[in-house]
């Protein structure tokens, strides 16, 4: 993706965020007394600034669209990156359902595979080693009650 297009898209996203927050800020109550700014003023200032800068980004994106010398954003090993994100997403979803240890036992080898590690023994050793580390350090030493 070309940088101008990325700037155009990020500008639009920031503008949408600003609009969403603006509509929510409208519903906030007024200040309790005259000397206080109230809960809405500070967010209004930020939203206003964000909207202006988002427009600058959009303008820049549109203006630079035809520029052939602009940098290009590349994601190397795109599939692996997306699979790792997906793997961690599923892992986090599984944690409260089947517990930390079982979800880690299932997810860690899968994420390692997605990341590019293909040796089963290495995957097993790493997953087992990490679980042992979590049990000893977090559960036993630090007393963190894992789900």
């Amino acid at each position: 993706m070309k940088m101008a297009l990325a700037e155009l898209i990020s500008g639009i996203v920031f503008l949408i965020i600003a609009i969403v927050f603006f509509t929510m800020t409208l519903k906030l109550p007024p200040p309790m007394n005259q000397s206080d700014l109230g809960p809405a003023t500070f967010p209004y200032i930020i939203i206003f600034l964000m909207a202006i800068l988002a427009c600058v980004l959009i303008y820049r994106g549109v203006k630079e669209r035809e520029n052939t010398k602009q940098p290009v954003i590349k994601i190397k090993r795109q599939n692996s990156v997306l699979l790792v994100i997906l793997g961690v997403f599923i892992y986090i979803n599984l944690m409260p359902i089947i517990g930390y240890y079982i979800s880690t036992l299932i997810s860690l080898p899968v994420i390692l595979w997605f990341a590019g590690e293909k040796k089963p023994i290495k995957i097993a050793l790493l997953s087992g080693g990490f679980l042992l580390f979590a049990k000893v350090v977090f559960d036993m030493l630090l007393g963190v009650p894992l789900p």
Partner: peptide, 24 residues
């Protein structure tokens, strides 16, 4: 290997952020 380090760091980030307040 970077891939192994990346996954170990990812696993620590999950574990560490859970330990922050003991919730998901």
């Amino acid at each position: 290997p970077t891939r192994i380090l990346a996954v170990v760091v990812a696993a620590i980030t999950v574990l560490g952020s859970y330990a922050y307040s003991n919730d998901m």
